[in-house]
Amino acid sequence: MTMPSSQTLTVDGRFVARDSEGYLVSLDDWSPEVAEAMAQDEGRELTPAHWEVLNVLRDFYRRYEAAPAMRPLVKAVRQSLGEEKGQSIYLMRLFPESPAKVAARLAGLPKPTNCL
């Protein structure tokens, strides 16, 4: 078992290890229930509008094996969810602070390298 380094979540009786910034230690641990638990722990509520974006992100990662920067995220959301939602202001409202970062963390994508 991976030693939970900093913070653990318990989801359906299972321990899920997260690092000091709240990212999953093992991406295989991700499930929709884990995402809900992570969000709740961060004081966020995931509505269907949030889930649409998380699914776009997971699809993006499946296709390209990388988490998108903000611009390509907006483009991906526009392609899947339409012009109205494919706007950075819409994503900012759903995931305040940094949509590309916060949403990627909740979607179970790898921790970004602070490269931008």
Partner: peptide, 15 residues
Amino acid sequence: QKGTHPQLKMLEMYD
């Protein structure tokens, strides 16, 4: 080891 072909397919998303 990750390939680079998914990165290349991603180029269009970065315009």
